[in-house]
């Protein structure tokens, strides 16, 4: 076998030199420890784009608003960009706990355990309500036998270990059409809220449903099955009224008490028990950054118009004022601490 000798002495020397560098010569120090001539103790500014970033992750329900707000916000504030990821409320809080994001979108309140994890990592949260939503239960647009359901019926369909196979199993008056169930998965705040309200226990749900983190997939599923049924935030129904039909929900056992999800019934709380607030959770530390201040302020002022545009219910003036005051208090708290 012929060996390649072209590298020669220079190559060997270079090799030796780099090995020396890496084994003995080089050491990485922090500026604070280095002292003296090396560093002045100040942190060098980041090399790069000069574009200010706001990291947002979480609920797909809230993302409907957040995407619209982002567009308007970026148009208004040059050189500020929002990196919006759409995963689920649970994933959003996980990212928040890991300290990777500034704002977590959530369609449910933060859990005790998540708050504890945040505190353990030195992260303080500011909770802001940004809208009201009627969690909407939908069926196929061609479904002509059902207009209203009671919470009891929903529970029989969705409860863990449910034996219900067809619509007839739920109510003898309904046809013998097989039930096909669709909905968000465990990472979703909508899932947590629905299971809590309908099944009485969070995370407890029938095994016979197709879970997807993407609400558009849920809609496609319902639209593709005549006996289909699923649930999601109202904005997804609002954008797909030609494909799916929203059901009236009755909190009692009498279907005559059923209430349809509309902005009025959600606002008044008549649409029970599936009316709920939507939140954004802001990392207090991030409020030191002017771009995050701008973003959250925008959400609570001009952003409220987009809340209505996508189909949710904006906060009323009193609630809005409370939220804005809470925000300003938090901002002055963190900026004063500096």
């Amino acid at each position: 076998m012929i060996r390649c000798n072209g590298v020669g002495v220079t190559g060997n020397l270079l090799c030796l030199f780099s090995v020396m560098l890496f084994t003995t010569g080089c050491s990485v120090e922090s500026v604070d420890n280095a002292g003296g001539d090396g560093g002045g103790g100040a942190v060098a500014p980041a090399v790069g784009s000069g574009v200010r970033r706001i990291q947002v992750d979480g609920s797909s329900t809230v993302a409907k608003v957040a995407a619209a707000v982002q567009e308007e916000f970026e148009g208004r504030f040059a050189d500020t960009k929002v990196a919006l990821k759409v995963t689920g409320s649970g994933t959003g809080f996980k990212e928040m706990i890991a300290g990777r994001i500034d704002v977590a979108n959530a369609s449910r309140g933060v859990k005790e355990s998540e708050l504890a994890d945040c505190a353990a990592n030195g992260i303080e949260l500011l909770e802001l309500r940004i809208a009201l939503d009627g969690l909407t239960v939908c069926v196929n647009a061609e479904n002509d036998w059902v207009e209203a359901v009671t919470v009891g019926q929903l529970n029989r369909i969705w409860a863990a270990g449910s034996e219900v196979k067809t619509w007839k199993d739920v109510d003898a008056a309904w046809p013998d059409e097989p039930l096909a169930l669709f909905g968000p998965g465990e990472e979703s705040g909508t899932f947590d809220f629905f299971t809590e309200e309908i099944n009485g226990e969070e995370d407890s749900i029938t095994e016979n449903y197709s879970a997807s983190a993407d609400d558009n997939v849920t809609i496609t599923g319902i639209a593709g099955e005549k006996g289909g049924m699923g649930f999601f935030g109202y904005a997804y129904f609002y954008a797909n009224q030609d494909k799916v039909k929203a059901l009236k929900i009755s909190a009692t056992d009498d279907p005559a008490d059923a209430v349809a999800p509309t902005s009025e019934t959600v606002k008044s709380g008549e649409y029970a028990p599936l009316s709920r607030p939507l939140f954004i959770y802001v990392k207090k530390e991030s409020l030191k950054k002017p771009e995050v201040q701008d973003y959250v302020r925008f959400f609570l002022t001009d952003g409220q118009k987009m809340v209505g545009d996508v189909g949710y219910v904006p906060l009323d003036d009193a609630e809005l004022k409370t939220a804005q005051e809470a925000l300003e208090a938090a901002i002055s708290e963190v900026t004063a601490a500096e």
């Binding site: 560098l21 990485v28 922090s30 500026v31 090396g38 980041a46 090399v47």
Partner: peptide, 19 residues
């Protein structure tokens, strides 16, 4: 942005601050 490389005690190079 707070770290420097000490090259064999001869000179120090500040490591870039990257996001």
């Amino acid at each position: 942005g707070t770290r420097v490389v000490n090259v064999m005690g001869l000179f120090r190079v500040r490591i870039l601050h990257l996001e």
